[in-house]
Every structure is written in C-alpha cells, then in structure tokens.
Design a protein around this nucleic acid. Sequence first.
DNA 1: CTGGGGAGGGGGCCC
DNA 2: GGGGCCCCCTCCCCA
Length: 474
Amino acid sequence: MDMVADLGASRLYRAPGESSHQQPQRWFNAADITVAHQSSLLKQLNQQRRQELFCDCSVLVEGQLFRAHRNVLFASSGYFRMLLSQGPNGLSDSVNATFDVFSPETFTVILDFIYSGQLDLSSHNVIEVMSAASYLQMNNVINYCKNFIKSSLDISVKDEDSDRCLSISETCSFTSGPGEENSEQQQQGPCSVSPPPALWTRDNSRSQSGFIGKDQDQEASASALTNPNSPANELNTEAEDLQDPHDPLYTLPGAERRRGKGGTKRRAPNSARSNQHEDLDIQEARTQKAEKAEELYATLPQIVGVIGHFNKDSNPIMRFKCPFCTHTVKRKADLKRHLRCHTGERPYPCQACNKRFTRLEHLRSHFETIHQARKLVCRKCKCQVTEETGHVVCEGTRRYRMCTACIQEVGCDNIPMDSLEGTNEEPALLLGVDGEEEGDTKRSWMVNDEDDLAEDSGADLIIQQVDDSDEELQ
DNA sequence: CTGGGGAGGGGGCCC
DNA sequence: GGGGCCCCCTCCCCA
C-alpha cells in the first residue's frame, strides 16, 4: 500500500493492488482504516463471544448465564475493572459475577453494546439500561441514555423546541465508534476526511445533523463518541465520574434554574401571558412533560432497588438508586420526590403568581412569605411587629409588613396599604384538583389559621394543587 | 467588589 | 406513601 498524500494527521492511502494510473482511484483515509480495523476486531470478538470462544468470564444475571471476555469487560466497565482488578494477577480461572439488580434482557443490551457499539434503547428499557449502566459504571452508555431521555422527555431545556420533541414510544438505536453502519458510510468515497460522527438512528429517520446541530451538548457528545481521546469516551475509573457536574450533557433542571432564576424573578407575573400562542405552547409542553414523567415513574419500581450499604450488623440495607445520578435514598417515595429535580415536573402552581413548585411545602412557604405577609417582621427596619402594629403593605401580588414608624417615615401616601379591616373579599382558598375545596388537612396551612389570615384576607388569592394537565384546561 | 438577607430547592427523617 | 418539618445550600438582589 502506498502512502500518496499526507494531509497532516489524516493520511491517504491507495488501495492494495491499485496503481496510480488505474481509474477510478480508491483512496483510503488513515482514520477510515483505523475505524475499519476496529470494526473488524470488534466483530471478531463478538463472534467469539457468541461461539463462547476464549470466554474467560461468566456473568450470572438473575439466573441467566452470560459468557464474555474479561479484558473486554475490563475495558468497558468501571465496575468490571474494579472487580477484575481485585483478583490475583495472571488468574487463569474464569471469573464470575452475579447481578440481581437488573434483568438479563437489560444486560443483553449492555453486552451487545460492549461488543458491537450499538445500543438498542427504547422507552421501555432506557431507564433500566441507564440504571444498569450506572451500576456498571459505563459513562458512555449513561450519556446515550441521557440523550435518549433528554430528547424524549425534553426535560432539561426550558425553551421547548417542538422539533426536538420525540415520541417516547419511538425506538432508538445508538451506534458508537466503529460500528458496521459506520464503516459502510465511511467507504463511500475519498471525501470523508474526518471520522464519521456517531450515528443517531431512529425509526423515523430524523437527520443526524438536524438533531445534533441544535444542541452543542449533543454535538460534543457525538464527537466524543468518535474520538477515542475524548474525555467522554474515556472509561470511568472514578466513582464521581458518574455524575460529573461539568458534564455538558448533565444539565439538571436545578442547574437550569440556577442559571435562569434571575431572569424568571425579574419577569412580571403576568408577562408570560402576553402572548397567547406562547402560553399554549408552554401548556402543551407541560402536559407532555407531566405525561412522560408519569410514564417514567411507571417504569421505576422494578429497577431502582439496590443494595448498596450495610448496617452495623453487616446486614444489607435496601436503598433506591436514582437512574439519573448517583443519589440513593431509603424510601421509594423519597426517590419519587428526588426525581422531580430531573424530570422538571412542578405539580404545584401558585395561583397568585403562576410560579410552580416541586413540593407543596415549597408552595406553601412561598405563598405565606410572598403573598400572605405571614412574617411578623417589619420589612424595612426588621423589628418584630404584631398583628396590630405590623401593617400589611401590598406591592402587586407581594405583601409584607411594616411597622407604624417605618410607614410614617416613608409616608403613607407612597405605600399601597392593605385595606383589610372590614373587607368582604374572599379569603384565600386551597382548591383541589377539580376545583373544589379540599378537606381540613390541606386547608389547614392556609385557612385554619383564621386569625392570621384575617388581616390578609383581602387577597383574592387561590392556590390549587393540580396536575399539569388539569391546569392546562383552565 | 463584597457581604447580608431573601427566596427557592433539595435531602433526611418523623408522623 | 403522603405530608410536613427542619436543616442546609445556592442563587440573586441590594446596600
């Protein structure tokens, strides 16, 4: 094979047996050759695995036996790296691993990915695959799952792009590195100088550039897949790598909040309603988000239970692991609560300012602080006031208290005072999902305290605990 | 630029 | 399992 051109890092080679005067010439890129070789090697290893040739590692998943090569597992999974490196060097005996925290079907997907670079994800298996990948410390698989979920749920991007909203029921298949499909594409001609990007193939044949190009994160991820030196492609050896806060793919809704909080805060409560179309889009997106979050929750119980810790008697303690991060909790209910920070679900809207919250207690706290002026502290001089001395001042939907002295100092004319005494206005209500008043339990934090509320009852404020879909209908 | 305070969010845990 | 409380942390605003 003659080297005919040197394009820096990318060298071109002429195919064997072809002279320079033969037409048409077939040029080979050095990267193409590498990729083709990797593909061929992986294929070979996969064949050996299927024929159980040279397999020196047995993995038992819920009673089903998988045979594999320990060096392949070692190179692919931080868990196996840890497991295999604990054994004596030069071990000739086969190594066994047993798992009960994920299903054989899930491990099949993982193993197929290890040996082919293709990850068969669907809405039905993505959570379980992600959880298993997290357990096995396979960062690249986690990232693919994140991308899949991100594109399906569109959970972490506030500006919902309807073009990118994929149906979660669609099946998706990722190809990483030198897969068969890749190599086919690469041999299309001499023009392919750079390595082909990772394939994102979907049933509806969404164009890869169209999808990836809209999101730099995804683009980075795609290039990382093809670049063996990319940090995202490096195999994880550190536990903390599982949730890298600097990982561009790991955009927590919480992080989004922190970045965008100021903007949201500055926005007038009703400004969002200025554009009816925008409103409808947001409502539609919220409905989708809530539905998909529900679908996500529905898949959880079978996969998140892991035994990760031991108590003082060395008995295992069951903990529930978040499929999105390394966080574990004792109770499934706590996990469900935690998951809201990943799904972006905010089921508790404040009817006074439309702000939404992940928890009822946060809504309550917000309402009491912002709209009820429950704090018996003068906002100006911070002195303690009473129901009598602390006059409630209205500022839009916001209310706070000021002492008599501060009010006189500022000047009564400048302050919109709350005309509470003798008002006939409706007290604040907490309504149920269907718009009816809820029982005493849920009303207690707002309505039972009639004495406190008497002063604030001028607010025609209604708080509803509704789910998204209900709210959209209003 | 910096520190304090307000507001919001998340985790642990009890009822 | 849900509700609620407490605590801590982060972010933003403002003086």
